[in-house]
Amino acid sequence: MAPSAPVLSGRQPVPFGARLAEAMAEHGPVCVGIDPHPALLRAWGLGDDVEGLRRFSLGVVEALGGRVAALKPQSAFFERHGSAGVAVLEEVLAAAAAAGTLTVLDVKRGDIGSTMAGYADAYLRDGSSLAADAVTLSPYLGFGSLRPALDLARQTGRGIFVLALTSNPEGASIQHALDGGVAVAARIAEGAAVENAAVEHPTVEHAPLEHPTVESPAAAAAGDPAPTDVASTDAAARLGSVGLVVGATTGSAVADLGIDLTRMGGAILAPGVGAQGAGARELAEVFGPARRQVLASTSRAVLAAGPEAASLRSALAATVDQAREALQG
Rank of each mutant, 00 (worst) to 15 (best):
G113Y: 14
T115R: 08
Q328V: 02
A207T: 12
P73R: 01
Y123W: 03
E285D: 11
S241D: 07
G157D: 10
A5Q: 15
G17M: 05
T298C: 07
F77M: 05
G17F: 03
L209Y: 00
V104P: 14
A43N: 10
Q12D: 15
G59V: 01
F78E: 11
E190N: 12
G66M: 07
V32M: 07
L40D: 09
A117W: 06
S252P: 14
F77C: 11
H201M: 06
V104H: 15
A220L: 02
E210F: 08
S297N: 13
R147V: 00
T166R: 13
A301C: 03
A189L: 07
E79G: 09
L130I: 10
T156H: 07
A122M: 10
Q74Y: 03
H37A: 10
V135N: 15
H206E: 13
G66R: 02
E195K: 11
D133A: 12
A317Y: 02
A270G: 15
G65R: 03
R263P: 04
G17R: 03
A177K: 07
A132H: 04
A117Q: 11
L312W: 02
V294R: 08
V294E: 13
A193N: 09
G113W: 12
R291S: 01
A207W: 10
P225E: 12
S128P: 08
G113N: 12
G288Y: 14
G251Q: 00
L40E: 10
E170C: 03
T101F: 13
G265N: 02
L239C: 11
G279R: 02
A153L: 06
E51I: 10
F143A: 14
V86G: 12
V254D: 04
T156D: 04
E190M: 11
A177D: 12
P15T: 05
S167H: 00
G33D: 09
E200N: 15
G110I: 04
D106P: 05
L46K: 13
G144A: 11
A25N: 15
Q155Y: 09
V32P: 07
L141G: 09
S297C: 05
V92C: 10
A226C: 13
Y123V: 06
V273N: 03
T101W: 03
Q293E: 04
P208N: 04
L303T: 10
T262A: 08
L165N: 09
T249E: 01
L58K: 11
R281E: 05
A96L: 02
V50W: 01
V182P: 11
L257V: 04
S232K: 14
R324T: 02
D106I: 04
L137R: 10
P29T: 06
V320E: 09
H206I: 01
E210V: 07
A164I: 01
Y119K: 10
A305E: 10
F77Y: 06
T136A: 08
E195T: 12
E215R: 15
R324I: 00
G110Y: 03
L146H: 08
K108T: 06
